[in-house]
Amino acid sequence: MSFERFALDIYALTFASLLVQIVVGAVMAVMLKKLVHCFLGLVITMVGVAGLYYFLGSPLLAVMQIMIYVGAVCVAIAFGLSLTHKAGEEGLQAPGPRGIVPPFITLAMLGSVLLGLSRREWVGYPQKIDESPIGMMLLGEYLLPFEVISILLTVAVIGAISVALIKRRR
């Protein structure tokens, strides 16, 4: 067995394990009772999605996903968890007859998307391209969304702080 063949095998196995990691993390995040374990599942899923972005040809997005989501959003959620922790609060409800709705919606969406995709040709494939034009695009072609998202983030931070300071009016 040649080295190259072995390398391709490892590559494919890594991709498959990433898919498994994403699904396991997602199931952990919605099925477990203790919120901290669900949070761990979320972290696992997010790291898996970062790996998926790398396989889609964008190491920049993979690093950004880890930096923004796992490094910042997950830490914020963990802080929120520790600040709103109340022992013994039941976090999960048995699905019941309404449990059929999410799989139904998902399958409907998936079916329609696959139907639409069957009529289109795949133009590209995942390849590592030079991502330095992204900076120029952000400040040139996509300047308006860039400024809008900076305003959005500022407003969100100010809003979160002012909301968290609301006290009950006596």
């Binding site: 699904v23 919605v30 959003v73 929120g80 039941e90 699905p95 709705v101 998902t106």
Partner: peptide, 24 residues
């Protein structure tokens, strides 16, 4: 992921649980 997140949003009973499903 979207389906599992949707399931979580419908059936989790705490705000942080709903946030985790939303992130999914």
């Amino acid at each position: 992921l979207f389906g599992i997140g949707l399931h979580g949003m419908m059936f989790r009973r705490t705000l942080i649980g709903i946030l985790i499903s939303l992130e999914l």
